[in-house]
């Protein structure tokens, strides 16, 4: 009883001192991450402003920003972003549907896996850009071939993710489902789907990243609009600010869409015993 009071005192002390740095780091961490790029940008801005460099090939941030606002004011920017987003969305949708279906089939039925997987793995070994000439011959130079290329890029990580996730579902948990006499469909809905979900979300995010990669490739090859077209146009007309403007917008859109998947899946993954959560990140 006597020794109880000081002990409690001590625990409340440590709790407080532990809370203080975590509150600090919540704001300090993003600021730390911004330190390097912001310093570099400001430094370069200063160098150009003071006349040490003309900034023609490497335009300073203010000039990139001016290019973006100019494109936005003329309505060009919206047109290019819409075109690119539309291609990525369609390609992503097709890639995800195909990857999920085939991945689920190969994961669930071992006969289908033996039949299907070697072919898919062989196709995966082909660098996806090698399909471009064929897609153009088959599907023409317009939207269809671009969307097909993006879909191919998205397909493989999703296929592999779904199949791998199903194959690695814990047999012991499946056995719990069996002892409660779950039928095939109930087993999928109540055991397999939730067990597979975390890996599935990861594969969707990887797939989306590849989708953004391939939209650039597709638009560089031949397009009259889209952010990739802005890149190519900037190169051909010698406008580095326009190239960098397109790159910045790619970065923002890529991060934004990835974040959308993350927040959409978060409510379903709260149960995870995740490493990042333990750190309080």
């Amino acid at each position: 009883m006597i020794s109880d009071a000081p002990a409690r005192q001590q625990t409340s002390d440590t709790a407080e001192s532990a809370a203080a740095p975590s509150r600090l780091s919540r704001y300090a961490r993003p600021v730390l991450g911004l330190l390097l790029p912001v310093t570099l940008a400001l430094g370069w801005e200063l160098v150009v402003w003071s006349g040490w460099s003309n900034g023609r090939l490497v335009p300073p941030p203010s000039r990139i920003f001016a290019t973006i606002t100019e494109l936005a004011r003329s309505g060009e920017l919206v047109r290019h972003i819409t075109a690119t987003l539309w291609r990525v969305s369609l390609g992503f949708a097709f890639g995800v549907v195909a990857g999920t279906l085939l991945g689920a089939i190969s994961g669930y039925w071992s006969l289908a896996r033996r039949l299907l997987d070697p072919t898919v793995q062989a196709l995966r070994a082909i660098p996806s850009l090698a399909w471009v000439p064929l897609f153009i011959l088959w599907l023409g130079i317009f939207e269809t071939s671009k969307i097909a290329l993006i879909a191919v890029g998205v397909f493989f990580p999703v296929y592999l993710g779904v199949m791998g996730a199903i194959l690695s579902v814990d047999r012991k948990i499946v056995e719990v489902g069996r002892t409660f006499r779950l039928s095939g469909f109930a087993m999928i809905r109540r055991i397999l789907l939730p067990a597979v979900l975390p890996a599935y979300v990861v594969s969707l995010r990887v797939g989306l990243g590849l989708g953004w990669m391939f939209v650039v490739a597709a638009e560089l090859i031949g397009a009259s609009e889209g952010l990739g077209y802005l890149l190519l146009d900037g190169q051909q007309l010698g406008k580095p600010a326009q190239i960098l403007a397109a790159i910045v917008i790619f970065a923002i859109l890529g991060k934004l869409t990835d974040w959308l998947i993350e927040i959409a899946s978060a409510p379903f993954l709260r149960w995870q015993d995740a490493f990042s959560r333990a750190k309080g990140a």
Partner: peptide
Amino acid sequence: ASPHAKIGIIFQEPRLLPWL
């Protein structure tokens, strides 16, 4: 011959479903 409603089992590990 297959799992039955009148027979329950408890394993060595709890085998709880982590998402529930």
